[in-house]
Design a protein around this nucleic acid. Structure first.
Lengths: 246, 246
DNA sequence: CGTGTATTTGACTTTTGTCAATGTAAGTGG
DNA sequence: CCACTTACATTGACAAAAGTCAAATACACG
């Protein structure tokens, strides 16, 4: 399913419902992508409140969904290649968050009228599109649990574990880690803490031999410790096949 | 639209997309409900990991979605009448959280094969079902922001503001407050803190004249203060018409 | 009226935030 | 090549928020 016939959408739901879509539907999906764009520097792709008539699929790189409040930035979701970043805008129309690129990214735009046609004529594909937004919500819920339950080190461990698994679904994870273009400030924004405290936590996890995060590279040193510290149970990712962290 | 012809589903999306569904579709929706059940005592309706072939719509009362971790209960979502609590189970099949009743509730069950038929033959209704799960996700995101950004008093203020508005959408809010069957322990579970600290916060908000929460009744004393303390901007609820908190 | 649950309070510890400053690595222009 | 800039990472000292443990009230319900 990682064939190159669908360069823009081949990673969509990869690792989740590998066999749920037929070849024909996969091709249909690829055909939904209208224009493609690349950003090499950090860029705000969409703003909260924007009324949109197309949705964004991430082809390459990392994007975040953020909500600004009192001048502070809060990351409410992170995306890896294959994620349909703001498919929810199809029905909601108005965005409740910004979409920003991190590092260098390539994104595709899908006009909403094409999604409407899918909804009218392709129930199976429509169901898969719906499914992908539900996966998103399941990840949101896990983040809520993580923020309610874990202290800063656990939150970071959970984030690392989740990203490692999600990147693995789309064949972008390494055996012992993955590359991650997030600064400590951004890690802090995703874990609900400050960059200064995040620095303490990064240092601690490095010194205790759990995970090393430096120079844009994450190296997992102790899978078991990572999993336990982050109270990580990958069931909420609804993945198929073998998992990075049991 | 609050006509009694649809006793089970008349509150579905009330206050949001009041006019999005035709009379015919409203009737169709009501027809989706198979059995109806009532629980008068706290009850776990569904468990994490359950594979289900029907979804639950809340007709009356309060239900919570919870994730247990290390023996602690974490509320990841709260529902008011009209909410399609676990419509996501239609596509996900397996639940990533428990569904529990709080106080006395009445719920309806919708078999998934009926939803499948809607998806195949009723694109407008299908879109509204999808839409309702997206509203859920938008609320999840706001909770993530709230947990990342606010301290315990802000979190409680936000929760109160949100519930007040959501109950108002379905005509269940009073002019100065609403009834809420949550204990301080449950408020704590929804705000990511401990019951002891939540008690301090409840006391503080009462003494500072922001909101009084006692004996299952919430009385808003100072709308403006509540809104500011909770950094509450109701845009994420995608409501129509006038709002409780501007 | 007693019993269990929910609420409240106090004392103390741990975690995290805040402020201020320093260190470090990569890139830029002279 | 070096001074300079800039962004990111790191550290220390202190304050504020929240967790923990223990116990005392208050309250609802049979």
């Amino acid at each position: 399913m990682t064939d190159d016939s669908c360069p823009y959408t081949r990673r969509f739901l990869q690792g989740r419902s590998r066999d749920a879509l037929s070849k024909r539907e996969r091709t249909l999906l690829e055909g939904l992508v209208g224009t493609v764009e690349r950003f090499t520097a950090p860029h705000t792709i969409l703003r909260r409140g924007d009324v949109v008539d197309q949705s964004t699929i991430l082809i390459e790189g990392t994007v975040a969904r953020v909500i600004y409040e009192d001048g502070k930035r809060h990351i409410v979701a992170l995306h890896v290649p294959g994620d349909f970043v703001d498919l929810h805008a199809f029905a909601l129309k108005r965005l409740d968050h910004d979409v920003v690129s991190i590092g260098s990214v390539q994104i595709g735009y899908v006009p909403h009228d094409r999604i409407q046609k899918v909804l009218e004529k392709e129930p199976t594909l429509a169901r898969m599109l719906w499914y992908s937004t539900l996966l998103d919500a399941a990840m949101h819920r896990e983040w809520i649990m993580k923020l309610e339950h874990l202290s800063a080190d656990g939150r970071l461990a959970h984030l690392v574990a989740e990203l490692w698994q999600r990147l693995d679904f789309v064949d972008l994870a390494g055996e012992n880690g993955f590359s991650l273009p997030l600064t400590q400030q951004e890690l802090a924004d995703a874990c609900g803490t400050t960059s200064i405290h995040m620095n303490r936590v990064v240092k601690k996890l490095r010194e205790t031999g759990v995970v090393d995060i430096s120079r844009g590279q994450v190296t997992v040193l102790d899978k078991q410790a990572l999993k336990e510290l982050g109270a990580f149970d990958p069931a909420y990712l609804y993945g198929q096949g073998p998992l990075k962290l049991t």
